[in-house]
């Protein structure tokens, strides 16, 4: 099962009536890679991500995610990926452990495997004493780590993170990126969107989407060289400045 390419899509397109939300998206992401999926508000990132997650059917184009066909095996894709949205889809009234147990059960993990994985997770996170606390009572930074753990407990090939760090302070954001680094070093592929351009530097490669199309794709270093820019912030401004959509 040494499949090196975990995400491979070609000309993926999504139209809503006459509006082309995503226009011929083509990209490949390797195993263990941290891939930053950037773009202005309204560029089509969420629509593209929904197609990659098997949540939205493309109008045209093709591709595979975690070895499964986007057009024919959407259910299999959903089983083999993790997804964390900006809204952290945790159940506020359930405890920390109940949340993890719920997600793990939905993914069909055995009771034994759930116990082992949650024990290990609580230990790594240093959250052992929060096991029985309702999620609504834990701080935002912990919720975020918990949401990531819930999305990855079933050891998916790839985890999709949609603006996981919005509104979070610098210390907490860093702790979150350490979790991403660790997951990636263990071979998990991480596909992440963010508006914090310093975070783009954490990624192995980055794409910048403008008006439904990928305008730039390379390593942060490569992009900075190509656009003669000192920071990713400058790169983003140069690439996204002519965006017609959204704002």
């Amino acid at each position: 099962m040494a499949k090196e390419i975990v995400i491979s899509v070609k000309d993926l397109t999504k139209k809503f009536g006459s509006f082309t939300a995503v226009d011929h998206l083509t990209l490949q992401v390797r195993r263990g890679e941290i891939f930053g999926f950037l773009g202005a508000n309204g560029a089509g990132k969420t629509t593209a991500m929904r197609m990659l997650c098997g949540l939205s059917f493309p109008t045209s184009g093709s591709g595979t995610v975690a070895g499964y066909d986007i057009l024919r095996q959407a259910e299999e894709i959903k089983r083999h990926i993790g997804y964390m949205s900006q809204k952290f889809s945790l159940y506020e009234n359930l405890t920390v452990w109940e949340n993890l147990n719920l997600f793990a059960t939905i993914y069909g993990m055995s009771a034994k495997s759930i116990r082992e994985k949650t024990d290990a997770a609580f230990k790594t996170l240093g959250m052992e004493n929060m096991r029985n606390v309702p999620v609504k009572e834990i701080p935002l930074g912990w919720k975020q780590k918990l949401a990531f753990t819930a999305a990855t407990l079933h050891s998916p090939d790839v985890v999709f993170l949609d603006e996981p760090t919005g509104g979070v302070d610098p210390s907490t954001r860093r702790k979150f990126w350490e979790m991403i680094y660790r997951a990636s070093s263990e071979g998990m592929t991480v596909f992440v969107t963010t508006h914090y351009l310093d975070e783009a530097e954490y990624c192995n490669r980055i794409s910048i989407m403008v008006d439904g199309r990928i305008k730039a794709l390379d390593s942060p270093e490569g992009l900075k060289r190509q656009y003669l820019a000192g920071t990713m912030d400058e790169v983003f401004r140069i690439v996204a400045k002519d965006a017609k959509r959204g704002d």
Partner: peptide
């Protein structure tokens, strides 16, 4: 109070 959370870099700059 955190007016630009979730807003992209170009819009933030504007």
């Amino acid at each position: 109070d955190e007016p630009t959370t979730g807003v992209d870099a170009v819009s933030r700059s504007e």
